[in-house]
Design a protein around this nucleic acid. Structure first.
Lengths: 159, 159
DNA sequence: TGCCATTAATCGTTATAACGATTATCCTTA
DNA sequence: TAAGGATAATCGTTATAACGATTAATGGCA
């Protein structure tokens, strides 16, 4: 592993005199950032980013029907404010195709291509292995608790 | 709240047929992203980003001694690969100062200015309020569990 | 002492994120 | 049915992130 990305492995934890709430905030950002960085390393040989990978999976679950660009944005992890250009890049690489609807000509449907499906197939195993490794510090019981907790943190935002 | 940032409040959750490990990964990214976005809104009037705010706090805890740029990078939440230009921006706004060491002329020490300290002072209350609100979905017991869990997730990375 | 590996920070460049404004299409209703 | 508001996607621009290469200074060692 190169020294740049490795630096995150041995970085000292941030100050100990943070408020409890801020400590949790920082830990959360730290873990989420490390996980995403690790995923990006796994995806790099395929030439896609974590956000692009997630969109491909979303489109996969929509299958042949495709999904309107706005629907893709809504399901995006980061509420991507610019799905258009993210799809531009995926389309240029041949992983998705886009077509304007005939019914409502405002909407553009995005679909994953066969090449995109093959790409997801190749990535499935290494990505699953990564996630397994990332969670290996938690017992099965702790994982269930983690899920509950994250849903509780997300919940307040859902109105 | 504007419609752009509000979209994240009502976004449907991602697909239900994800693997357990991936579901946790997505929840984690989702919550971390939402929290950071909310912090960025609180910081916006002050003209700084969450990463810059964190660096200012790190420098604050280092007080007058200052901190080498490399030390700042190590303590950065995202292992910032380009602290130089982040500090450039903070310096241009007057929140930090930099000076090359006389002992070892390779290292550049960064220090927070008095203006930077005043800025942190003004931000302290709104940021604390935000974090309190973000965690209001968790009981005190759950917060302790969350901290333990996040440390367990981070731990494996520390060798 | 002079050389070379190492370390600290910066810089050049490309890619992506973020924000606002714009265009095209549709829907409602007066 | 024509006008005005709403919605979908795109585009223009600026700022930041990411990556690699480079420069400057140090320390060890023949």
């Amino acid at each position: 592993m190169n020294p740049r990305t490795d630096s995150r492995s041995t970085r000292p934890l941030f100050g100990t005199k943070e408020s409890p709430a801020r400590e949790i905030y920082l830990l959360l950002q730290h873990v989420a950032g490390a996980f995403e960085q690790e995923l990006s390393l796994v995806l790099r040989p395929a030439g896609i980013t974590p956000a692009q990978y997630h969109v491909l999976r979303v489109l996969h679950s929509a299958a042949a029907d495709g999904l309107a660009c706005s629907a893709v944005a809504e399901r995006s992890v980061s509420g991507d404010p610019d799905v258009t250009r993210l799809l531009d890049r995926l389309e240029k690489q041949g992983w998705v195709s886009r077509a304007r609807e005939s019914a409502d000509r405002r909407v553009v449907m995005a679909r994953i291509t066969n090449a995109g499906l093959r790409l997801l197939g190749k990535l499935e195993e290494p990505v699953a292995a990564l996630h397994a490794r990332q969670l290996e510090g938690l017992s099965a019981r702790q994982r269930a608790a983690a899920r509950t907790m994250l849903l509780a943190l997300e919940g307040p935002r859902l109105g």
